[in-house]
Amino acid sequence: MRLIVLGVVAGLATVVATVAIPLLTTERAQRVTVSAGVVTSQSTSVEVSTPEPTPEADRDPEADSLPKPKVPVGPPGLKVLDHQFRERGMVRVDKSALQPFVFRVASYNVLGASHTSGKGARKGYAGYAARTPGQVGLIEAHRASVVGLQEFQHPQARQFAGLRGSAYGVYPGLQLGEALSQNSIAWRTDTWSVVETHTIGIPYFGGRPVQMPYVLLRHLGSGRTVWFGNFHNPANIGGNHAGWRAAATRIEADLANRLGADGTPVVMTGDFNDRAEFACPFSARSGMHSPDGAATVNGVCRTPRGMSVDWIFGSGSLQWSDYVQDWSSRDRRLSDHPIIAGTATVPSIHDPSKCRRAKARAGMQIYCPAS
């Protein structure tokens, strides 16, 4: 074996190879020389540099195809702005919340069809078919966009729908059968849209509960909502029903409190068959007031002169004006009741002086105190 190795080395005697071995971790390198079978080494200084990567070697084709992240520019988004103002105790509101809005409401007992027909027909009054067009004209003359109707019996509801069609929404009207049409709420569909419809049992003759309506309507001009209820408490026909009227008044006042607990305005209309006997306990229990001035203030009930048994009441936040008690209805033999009407102004939800405007990507926003 030793002879073979020596032979190989001798055969390479004329070949000299020089190999430079780079050391990347230092700035020096060993030069190794193999010559005539003798290996020698010499330390020499070399410069070590890292070559610049070529663009082709460094590119990731898949990364190039991905969308580049967008850096937000300009005003913040709504989520960011909402968070910033929420930390300051403010919430974003629609501009309609800062604007008051106005509507006109009426209450009208139209004298039921059954009261002007047959043996017991009311003397001096024509049948319902002759009276209904004049009653509709009277409602519209008073510019009422919402009206509570009592004794609005099924034939009258059907004729009303034929005269005005889709110009008015009516509840219950023709929706819940003949018995329940008598107490209905009608609203102009160019001013209001219906959100919710309900009925509540009110004690009538002998305490028998009769379902009477209340509805939540949205005012199209402002986008805000108002509750409306309409009632007919029992008269002293076939006995003294004062006790049942008092029970009905408590139910109606408690309903008003429940509906208005979240700040939504409430308006109630009706033939309550009482004057101060209704107005005083109702206003004391509900905190509502009427456009003709009936209210309970600091425990003292105030009532107007010339009261009738027909009433409109609204939440304490409402401002009333232009009240009218129009007895031309009786003079024209349209009904034995007047039509009454008033203008309600609903104030803004927030105090504009405490609100702030801020620009977002979606446009200018309004923030007001949360409480």
Rank of each mutant, 00 (worst) to 15 (best):
L6N: 12
V8H: 06
V9S: 12
A10F: 09
T14M: 10
A17P: 07
V19S: 10
A20V: 13
L24P: 08
E27F: 04
V32I: 09
T33Q: 14
A36G: 14
G37T: 13
G37S: 15
S41D: 15
T44I: 14
V46C: 12
E47R: 11
E47P: 09
V48K: 06
E52A: 15
E56A: 12
A57H: 08
A57E: 14
D60I: 15
E62S: 13
A63P: 11
S65R: 13
L66E: 15
K70P: 04
V73C: 08
G77I: 11
G77C: 13
D82A: 06
H83W: 09
F85N: 07
R86T: 14
R86S: 14
V91R: 05
V91M: 08
R92E: 11
L98Y: 03
L98Q: 05
P100K: 01
F101I: 04
F103P: 00
V105L: 05
T116F: 00
G118D: 10
G120A: 14
Y125T: 01
A126I: 08
A129L: 03
V136T: 04
V136S: 10
I139V: 15
H142I: 10
A144H: 02
A144Q: 01
S145D: 01
V146K: 01
V146T: 07
V147C: 02
V147K: 01
L149C: 05
H154Q: 09
P155C: 01
Q156E: 12
A157P: 09
A157E: 09
A157Q: 01
R158N: 14
Q159E: 12
F160P: 06
F160T: 00
L163M: 15
A167R: 14
A167N: 14
Y168K: 00
Y168T: 00
L176E: 08
E178V: 12
E178H: 10
I185E: 03
I185P: 00
A186E: 04
R188G: 03
R188Q: 11
S193W: 00
T199E: 10
P203I: 02
G207N: 08
R208H: 07
P209Y: 03
V210G: 08
P213I: 03
Y214P: 04
Y214W: 09
L216G: 03
H219W: 08
R224L: 14
T225W: 02
V226Q: 00
V226E: 01
A235K: 12
A235H: 13
G238C: 11
N240D: 15
R245N: 11
A246C: 03
A247G: 07
A248M: 06
I251Q: 09
A253G: 10
L255H: 01
R258S: 11
L259D: 03
L259R: 02
G263R: 03
D271Q: 07
F272M: 14
A276E: 12
A279L: 06
A279C: 10
S283M: 06
G287S: 05
M288C: 04
M288P: 06
T296F: 04
V300Y: 01
V300N: 05
R302T: 11
R305W: 02
G306M: 06
W311F: 06
S317M: 09
Y323M: 06
D326M: 08
W327A: 09
L334Y: 02
H337A: 00
A341E: 02
A344H: 04
P347L: 00
D351K: 09
R356V: 13
R356S: 15
R357I: 13
R357V: 15
A358M: 10
K359D: 15
A360E: 14
G363L: 12
M364Q: 13
S371M: 12
